[in-house]
Write a protein that binds this DNA or RNA. Structure first.
Lengths: 125, 125
DNA sequence: TTGAAATATTCTATTATGGGAATATATTAA
DNA sequence: TTAATATATTCCCATAATAGAATATTTCAA
């Protein structure tokens, strides 16, 4: 069995770097024509069109016709599942940072008392 | 050129559903042996080992030997880039929800005044 | 109507994937 | 040492993805 299709869900669609670049471009809220995206990212036009096709399939972007242009806009709500999933782990790195900070403060306090240089503890991030 | 390797970054590693299932299992902070993961997810042992290999390569999990078992633990900090990226768009759906809520409140107020039944406005989520 | 501009689609070649089955490796117990 | 337990690795297969080039489609303008 091959990898799940890029169009199967937002996680897969968003795994591709250039698609995230396109999404990031559209973040400012305004509509972008394909040509503008092409110029801005420096990618071949067919490449951009194909990536936009994937993003459209999973509902991450929407299109509107305007003459011979196609104007794309972001549908950011589709990113929420990714956010919700990642947010589940938020406490892990914040508490980790808290521990590091607390340790640093203790070290500083001890160093101040003993007038010894501070040897930073190794801690994995 | 094929798709970027699943081991190339966290976004790609996490795109696979079963790998997210494994990650979710490890969320509780304690260590899990491969066998426990196998039982809990109902997947073949080689499948689990292979997915764990991908997660290990990108640093999402870490292993420790314990007799003939291998105990895996989550390294949640690696998920932060995904969180940070998704968080960029947080305002988009919160403001959208705000608009929906505000509209609902206006409708309710009007309905109360006019004693008319409320017709909910259609709005894309 | 013909041409140009903007975008989408098709085709080819390369390649990593994930499942399944089988097997290898490592560690402990008898 | 041998057996059993736990985990990892290898092999095969069918599949889908991406880039690139070429071409098709759509729309507007002359």
């Amino acid at each position: 069995m091959p990898r799940a299709a890029t169009t199967s869900d937002v996680f897969n669609a968003v795994a591709e770097d250039k698609r995230r670049q396109i999404i990031d471009l559209l973040t400012n809220g305004r509509e972008w024509s394909v040509g503008e995206i092409v110029v801005n990212l420096g990618l071949p036009q067919p490449t951009v069109s194909k990536h936009l096709g994937v993003l459209r399939t999973v509902g991450l972007v929407e299109v509107r016709k305007d003459g011979q242009s196609r104007l794309y806009r972001l549908n950011a709500a589709r990113i929420k599942p990714v956010y919700d999933w990642a947010k589940t782990f938020e406490q892990h790195w914040t508490t980790q940072l808290d521990r590091i900070k607390a340790r640093a403060e203790r070290s500083a306090a001890v160093a101040k008392e003993t007038k010894q240089p501070v040897t930073p503890a190794k801690e994995k991030l």
